[in-house]
Each structure stands twice: as C-alpha cells, then as structure tokens.
Computed example of a mutant assay.
Amino acid sequence: MKKIPLFLVAMALVSPVAANAQDAEDNRLQGPHIGIEAVRDSNEASQATSTREASRKGYGGRVHAGYDAVLGNVVLVGAEIGVGLGGKTIDQASLVTPGRFKVDPGLSYDATGRIGITPTDGLAFYGRAGYRWLKTEQSVTGQTTGNFSRKETEKGFTYGGGMEFAATEYLSLRAEFNHTKYSDDLRQNKMSIGASIRF
C-alpha cells in the first residue's frame, strides 16, 4: 500500500482547526511589529585549508521589525529584518606555529521570511529562512610570513524555527533557533528569546 503523502496528513490534522478558527483579522499575531531579543551565540570557525575548528559561545542581542499576516484563519506568513551582535571572538592556533588565527564577529544584519500554523488565536509554530550578513575582523599574527589583518563581510543562508504567543493584545513573546552557514570555514548557531510590540 502506498504511503499517504505527508502534506495530506498535515492537511487532515489542520482542517478541523481551520474550520473552528476565528476570523483572521482577530488574530493577535497579525500586523506590524518591532521587538528585541536576548541571544545565545555559538560561532565555529577554521582557517582556510585547515581541518581544525574552534568554537566560542557568548551572549548578545538583536532588534527586529516585521509584518505578519494570517491566511485562511490558520496559516501565518511574515517578513522580518533585524540587526544584532555577532558573538564572541574565536581564537586558535594558526597553520604555522606559533601564530594565532582570530575571527572577531561584529554586527549582523538579516532579512528573513517565516511560515507556520496558528492552531489558536495568539499562538504560532513556524519555520524561518532568509539571508544574513556578518561583519568580521579576521587576522593571522605571530607567523614568520603570511600574517594579515582585514575586515570582511561574511554572508550566507540562514534557517531555523520557533514558536510565538501573544501575552496581551499588544505584546507577544517568542523563542527561536537559527543556523547560518556563511562559508565552509564559518558557521553560527543562535538561540534566542524575545518580545515584540504589535500595532
């Protein structure tokens, strides 16, 4: 017997919710919003051509602004831009002893979209995807040759997911996880909790 496609199963589960959901215009997660987040960053970096990786965890923040809409009473779609801190400096031995290789993340910028379900008014589960830019200062010091220091803007695809609920008519709370691969040599994980003011 052929397996039923996953999306048919999802539709079967969602349909009863959609049939009993209230009008979309009453959903408290709809419309424009601005907010702030507390972030736990985990950065992983390696020097080009090296198989050695170093990681560094730290705390930062992000501010965001966006717009959400509820379609068919149950599907949440939205777009968002954000600016945040990049995390802690990564410091490891360079390819030539006794040199050091460092990556110091600065500000990050992102533009993402999200899509999910709102099983009830004021509650959403969603996936997020988009693009992120990260300003960095990278350097190699202490080698006899090949030392450098330069500023670069890394960029890459970011994706993740989370949940959000409306605490009041004008305030919503969220928790998210996002992963960004800037290159084979630099990756970043972000866990965040945040709050948004809705208009």
Rank of each mutant, 00 (worst) to 15 (best):
L76N: 04
A175V: 14
L186I: 04
Y59E: 05
F177V: 01
T120R: 10
E152W: 03
G156R: 03
L107N: 10
A24W: 12
M191E: 12
P16Y: 09
T168W: 03
G130M: 02
T158H: 01
S46F: 02
K190W: 09
T97A: 14
K3D: 14
R198W: 02
A18G: 13
R132P: 00
Q92T: 03
V74E: 06
E169C: 04
I117W: 00
L6K: 13
G162Y: 03
Q30A: 15
S149N: 06
P105S: 10
T89Y: 05
L85A: 11
L8M: 15
E152Y: 03
P105W: 05
A166Q: 03
G146N: 15
L173I: 13
H33Q: 13
G87D: 10
S192H: 05
A38N: 01
R198G: 01
L95T: 09
K88Q: 10
S42H: 11
A54L: 11
M1V: 07
F125P: 12
T118Y: 05
A19T: 12
V9C: 04
D41P: 01
G82F: 08
T97D: 15
A69P: 07
N178C: 11
K135T: 12
S192C: 01
D91I: 00
R40C: 07
K88N: 12
R150N: 06
A38Y: 01
L107H: 03
S172E: 10
G87L: 09
V9D: 09
G194W: 13
I34R: 09
T118V: 02
E53Q: 13
L171N: 04
G35M: 10
G113R: 00
T180Q: 05
D104N: 09
A93P: 04
Y182I: 07
R174P: 14
T180C: 05
D91F: 02
T136N: 08
F101L: 03
D184Y: 05
I117C: 00
L6P: 13
A19V: 10
A175K: 03
R114Y: 00
S50V: 13
G72M: 10
G113P: 00
E53A: 11
I34W: 11
G146Q: 11
S42D: 11
F7N: 14
I36M: 15
Y126I: 01
A166Y: 07
G84H: 04
V83P: 10
N178V: 12
L171A: 11
S196I: 02
I193G: 15
G86Q: 09
F165S: 04
S108T: 15
F148K: 11
A38G: 11
G72K: 08
D41W: 05
V140F: 04
V9L: 13
D91A: 11
G35D: 13
I115V: 00
A166R: 03
K2W: 13
A65Q: 10
G31K: 03
R56L: 08
R132L: 12
P98N: 06
L186A: 05
N27R: 05
A93S: 13
K135N: 13
A48S: 12
E176M: 09
V75W: 10
G99H: 02
S183Q: 05
K190T: 12
V74I: 12
Q92E: 07
G122E: 01
S139F: 00
G146A: 08
A93V: 03
L13M: 08
A69C: 06
T118M: 02
G127K: 06
T89N: 08
